[in-house]
Simulated assay, not measured.
Amino acid sequence: MNDQHHFKFSTGVLAYPIFFVLTIWFVFWFEVRFGFNFSKYGIYPQTLKGLRGVVFSPFIHGSIQHLYHNSIPLFVLSAALFYFYRPIAWKVLCFGIIVSGFLTWCIGRPSYHIGASGLIYLLVSFIFFKGVFAKYYRLIALSLLVVFLYGSMIWYALPLEEGVSWEGHLSGLITGLLFALTFRRSIAKPKKYVWEQTDYNEADDPFLKHFDENGNFIEKINPEVEQEQPAINYTFKEKKD
């Protein structure tokens, strides 16, 4: 199944992103309310135990500020994903978490890497490059909007600030690009009109038949060959007593 379809709004466009954001808030509330610390379930690179963080790390945040800053872009970008790329949205999310998380596990520093920011970088990268590859004005406009809103995030994919998992951000960017290339054949296309089809024939177009060779409008079309109407014969029969 590809994503060559008309963009349609559905409840999932908002419901799934809201559910995901509420889930990460619930996890943080659970930690604070019951005194847990789930940071040890994050990605710890090059350790077998740290592999569990590939799945768990996007749901774990170290502070309320960390959670807040991730919530808005996560909602906006995932909603855009489900609206414009609905048939492949779950593949991008699920496989994206695994691939970007594993890449972080491979290249990361020996520390716990937590947060949904890697997934956010994945969505930014995927939506941007997918729109560029599509060469379709709606998706290109979406790419430009993503750059306008989140383009400055690219600096956090470099080792410029302490305490920031630039490895997770970089892994998300790389994974998003790889996914945009992988799903390149599944690019949304605008609906083609009849006259844009390859087998279109002007002579068969009922609308164009109303115009003569000089472009004048013909209100009534006279058929080239009139079909003979079958004659109706009436036979009078005398009524018998």
Results as ranks from 00 to 15, higher is better:
residue 44 Y to I: 03
residue 107 I to T: 11
residue 241 D to S: 05
residue 41 Y to S: 05
residue 121 Y to D: 15
residue 224 E to H: 03
residue 73 P to R: 03
residue 8 K to D: 12
residue 162 E to Q: 12
residue 87 P to R: 01
residue 169 H to C: 11
residue 133 F to S: 05
residue 99 V to G: 04
residue 146 V to W: 10
residue 88 I to Y: 12
residue 16 Y to G: 04
residue 101 G to V: 02
residue 6 H to R: 06
residue 227 Q to W: 13
residue 102 F to S: 10
residue 221 I to R: 04
residue 35 G to Y: 14
residue 160 L to C: 09
residue 70 N to A: 14
residue 102 F to Y: 12
residue 176 G to A: 14
residue 188 A to F: 12
residue 55 V to P: 00
residue 97 I to G: 04
residue 170 L to T: 06
residue 133 F to K: 00
residue 165 S to N: 01
residue 162 E to M: 07
residue 57 S to V: 07
residue 170 L to S: 13
residue 18 I to P: 09
residue 206 P to H: 00
residue 135 K to C: 12
residue 4 Q to Y: 15
residue 160 L to F: 15
residue 68 Y to E: 14
residue 167 E to Q: 05
residue 3 D to E: 14
residue 142 L to Q: 04
residue 164 V to H: 07
residue 163 G to A: 09
residue 107 I to F: 12
residue 168 G to K: 08
residue 46 Q to C: 00
residue 195 W to V: 13
residue 189 K to R: 15
residue 126 F to T: 11
residue 59 F to Y: 15
residue 45 P to A: 02
residue 230 P to G: 12
residue 33 R to K: 03
residue 86 R to I: 04
residue 128 F to N: 13
residue 39 S to P: 01
residue 97 I to Y: 07
residue 164 V to I: 06
residue 209 K to Q: 13
residue 84 F to Q: 01
residue 212 D to F: 03
residue 164 V to R: 03
residue 226 E to S: 14
residue 207 F to C: 00
residue 8 K to T: 10
residue 210 H to A: 00
residue 97 I to T: 03
residue 14 L to M: 08
residue 70 N to R: 01
residue 10 S to Q: 12
residue 27 V to R: 02
residue 222 N to F: 15
residue 70 N to K: 01
residue 139 L to T: 09
residue 95 F to D: 14
residue 2 N to A: 10
residue 212 D to W: 06
residue 70 N to D: 15
residue 108 G to S: 04
residue 106 C to G: 01
residue 24 I to P: 01
residue 135 K to L: 14
residue 209 K to W: 10
residue 131 G to K: 00
residue 113 H to I: 12
residue 231 A to V: 15
residue 55 V to I: 10
residue 214 N to W: 08
residue 30 F to T: 01
residue 120 I to K: 03
residue 30 F to I: 02
residue 181 L to R: 00
residue 197 Q to K: 06
residue 90 W to H: 08
residue 186 S to L: 05
residue 66 H to L: 03
residue 86 R to N: 13
residue 219 E to D: 14
residue 119 L to I: 06
residue 151 G to C: 07
residue 2 N to G: 11
residue 28 F to E: 09
residue 127 I to L: 14
residue 139 L to Q: 06
residue 77 L to Y: 10
residue 118 G to C: 05
residue 188 A to L: 13
residue 202 E to S: 05
residue 134 A to K: 02
residue 193 Y to F: 09
residue 187 I to N: 13
residue 12 G to V: 01
residue 145 L to Y: 13
residue 38 F to G: 04
residue 64 I to A: 12
residue 183 F to L: 05
residue 134 A to S: 08
residue 239 K to P: 04
residue 211 F to Q: 04
residue 71 S to L: 06
residue 183 F to W: 07
residue 216 N to P: 00
residue 63 S to E: 14
residue 70 N to I: 08
residue 88 I to H: 08
residue 169 H to R: 03
residue 107 I to G: 07
residue 57 S to T: 10
residue 157 A to I: 07
residue 55 V to E: 01
residue 178 L to Q: 11
residue 55 V to T: 06
residue 190 P to R: 10
residue 162 E to V: 08
residue 16 Y to T: 00
residue 61 H to G: 09
residue 170 L to R: 03
residue 71 S to H: 05
residue 102 F to H: 06
residue 58 P to C: 07
residue 180 A to Q: 06
residue 63 S to D: 15
residue 46 Q to T: 02
residue 121 Y to I: 10
residue 141 A to G: 01
residue 220 K to S: 14
